[in-house]
Every structure is written in C-alpha cells, then in structure tokens.
Simulated assay, not measured.
Amino acid sequence: MKKALFALLILFSIKSMAQSSEETAIRQLLERQTTSWNRGDVEGFMQTYWQSDSLMFIGKSGVTRGWQQTLNNYKKGYPDTAAMGKLTFDIIQIKPLSPEYYFVVGKWMLKRSIGDISGHYTLLMRRIKGEWKIVADHSS
C-alpha cells in the first residue's frame, strides 16, 4: 500500500512539474507579445502566432483565417504607436487540454493617449515543433 501511494505521489509531482513548466512557457510567450507590442513591433508580436493559413483570429469584425491576414488586420487597426498604446495582460486561467494543447483565458488592456480600451481573450495554444504557438485567438 505504501509503495503504491509513494508511486502515485511521484507521478503527481512529475505531472505537476511538467504542467508548471508548460504554464511558465506560455506566460513567457505572452510576455514576449507584450514586450513586442509595447515597442511598436506588430510583426514581433505576431511571431507568437502559428504562421499558417489555418490560424484563426476571431474579433469584432468576425473570423479571420491565416497568419498574414491577421498581421494585415493588426497593422490596419493599429497603424501607429498612439493607436497601439501600452499593452498589459491579466491571465485568468491557463488550462491543459492535452500534452499538445492548452487553453488560456484572460483580459487585455491598452493604455493610450487617444483613449484606453480593454477586453477579454481566449487562446488555443498548441505545441508545434517544440514551441508553443497561438493557433486560435478570440479577442473581444
């Protein structure tokens, strides 16, 4: 009985450490996004997204498919640093769905001289070639 309990505790600890490192990697990805955005680098911000025609972004204008079109929309909607402002994220939940997928829920805020805006987001993250990438983003 003691051996079985000990084995379960070790398994739980290993699983917790793996989840913790995955969460850390996802938090670091969101920090890279924030840093890129706040220096006015939309293309750097987009490096955290899956560079694929299958990327899905859902926003106030509906569904956009593809990395390039999502980048084009960001550049159109945020043409300069005044429009971009300073970005902060408040992560509400990071939840593993499988070893390959995570679900992230949070709030975004832009502090801008032309007026602050904010909203919420849900992200579907996928590990692709050893790196976490955003494969679907619903921001409102």
Rank of each mutant, 00 (worst) to 15 (best):
K60W: 08
N72M: 05
M84G: 01
S98W: 11
T70S: 06
L71W: 03
N38P: 02
S52M: 03
L71Y: 02
M84A: 02
G106P: 07
Y101M: 15
W132A: 12
A4P: 00
L110Y: 15
H120M: 13
T34W: 00
L8Q: 13
M17P: 00
Q51S: 06
S118H: 11
P79D: 01
K2S: 14
H138A: 11
V135N: 07
A4E: 13
G59E: 02
K107E: 15
D116G: 11
I26A: 08
N38A: 02
S54W: 00
L29T: 15
I114N: 13
N38L: 07
S140I: 14
I58P: 03
V104Y: 05
I128L: 13
E22D: 15
Y78M: 04
M84Q: 13
K15G: 10
V42F: 00
V63T: 10
S16P: 01
A136V: 10
Q47W: 01
P96L: 08
T34C: 01
I14D: 07
L30Q: 12
K95S: 05
D41M: 04
R126A: 14
S113K: 14
T48G: 07
S36T: 05
T122W: 09
F57V: 10
K107P: 02
T34G: 00
E23F: 01
R65L: 11
G44D: 03
L110H: 13
S98G: 12
K3F: 04
G85A: 06
L55H: 00
F57P: 00
K133V: 08
V104H: 10
L87C: 04
Q69I: 03
M125S: 12
G59H: 04
A7R: 03
I114C: 11
Q68V: 07
H120E: 12
T70Q: 01
S21P: 01
A18T: 05
Y78T: 04
R112L: 08
S98E: 07
N72I: 05
M109E: 13
G66P: 04
V63A: 09
E43N: 07
I26Y: 09
T88A: 14
I114H: 08
F57T: 11
A18Q: 06
A82I: 11
I94C: 03
P99S: 10
T81L: 13
Y102F: 12
S20V: 05
H138Q: 08
A25W: 12
N38F: 04
L87K: 01
Y101P: 09
R127F: 03
I26P: 07
L97D: 07
G130L: 11
Y74V: 05
K111I: 15
F12R: 04
